[in-house]
């Protein structure tokens, strides 16, 4: 099979192992392409893609735009701050208006969980989810798993810890689904207030002790503390950033205590000194910038495979 089993990429849920393998195989080729002197192929030259970002983003949006441009697609980008959404237009109306201008594929980030699925049911176009609220962020999970596979060879029976703000993290959910599908053991770690209830039903173990988790894992994926979500809800999940950093922040002293070397990941943007210190983030164990490079290749693969099925 060299076709994806889905028409849209809404989440990792819904993908099968073969889909992920197919995406990784294409991503490997695209990584070679983006390291050439001429980093562009003409595959999507007759396609127009709209990037609809109803929520702020720098990395994901740049990464998607670069992926689209390196596939020679025409790109229009839109952010909610400066649009008619402020005037009260509904999501379906906004998207239908954009599609009326003959757009073939929509990449969307939205603050509401489920928005891409809702859109996929209502409008006739290919939808790629670039993050929907606290639900899923599938391309981030794919690029994380791709980077790990590149580093470790296989993920089968590897111990992977996701550490930090699991409650507000779409990256955590997509990562858990993707890593479990590829055969890894996953543990989430963080303060009790930032771990959702019943997360064990996703097949993960839970820990509230960072040192114990670091001793167990081969890979530590440090998630960002999402202060903006906490502030907007007017709720505090831990007493202070300083206290969080001392209990759940990754620093050199903690790494030095370990017997084995572990791989450090972070989806960005980093709060230096909170979830991870600068010396660790910039160390050779960190694959944070590989994640960013692979992000473009993986997104090229996703767009290429989805577009090829039309």
């Amino acid at each position: 099979m060299n076709k994806l089993s889905v028409r849209h990429l809404i989440g990792i849920r819904g993908l099968c192992e073969n889909d992920i393998e197919l995406i990784f195989q294409a991503a490997k080729e695209f990584k070679e392409v983006i390291n050439r002197p001429i980093k562009k192929v003409p595959s999507l030259r007759d396609l127009t893609i709209a990037n609809l970002f109803f929520e702020n983003s720098t990395r994901t949006r740049l990464s998607f735009e670069l992926a689209q441009k390196r596939l020679s697609a025409d790109v229009v980008s839109f952010s909610a701050g400066s649009s008619s959404v402020k005037k009260g237009e509904t999501l379906v109306d906004t998207v239908n208006n954009i599609l009326a201008m003959k757009v073939d594929l929509v990449v969307m980030r939205h603050p509401h969980p489920g928005a891409p699925q809702f859109l996929a049911n209502k409008v006739d176009t290919i939808i790629v989810n670039a993050g929907d609220g606290t639900h899923e962020h599938p391309t981030q999970a794919l690029l994380d798993a791709f980077s790990l596979q590149e580093k470790l060879g296989t993920l089968v029976n590897k111990n992977i810890a996701i550490i930090g703000d699991i409650r507000h993290s779409r990256v955590a959910i997509s990562n858990i689904l993707c890593l479990k599908l590829l055969g890894a053991n996953v543990r989430v770690c963080g303060p009790k207030t930032l771990i959702p209830k019943h997360i064990q039903s996703m097949g993960v173990t839970v820990s509230h002790n960072l040192d114990e988790t670091l001793a167990w894992c081969d890979v530590a994926n440090m998630l960002r503390i999402q202060q903006e979500r906490q502030e907007s809800q007017g709720v505090s999940y831990f007493p202070s950033l300083r206290e969080y950093a001392s209990s759940f922040g990754l620093n050199k002293a903690r790494l030095d205590k370990l017997d084995n070397e572990i791989v450090i990941m972070h989806p960005g943007p980093i709060n230096r000194g909170v979830e991870i210190t600068s010396d660790v983030a910039d160390s050779q164990h960190a694959i944070i910038l590989d994640q960013v490079e692979n992000g473009v290749a993986v997104r090229m693969a996703v767009l290429y495979l989805l577009a090829s099925m039309q």
Binding site: N2, Q25, A26, K28, E29, E32
Partner: peptide, 9 residues
């Protein structure tokens, strides 16, 4: 009908 799988360059 079926997309072609890329090989290595």
């Amino acid at each position: 009908e079926n997309p072609i799988s890329p090989s290595l360059t």
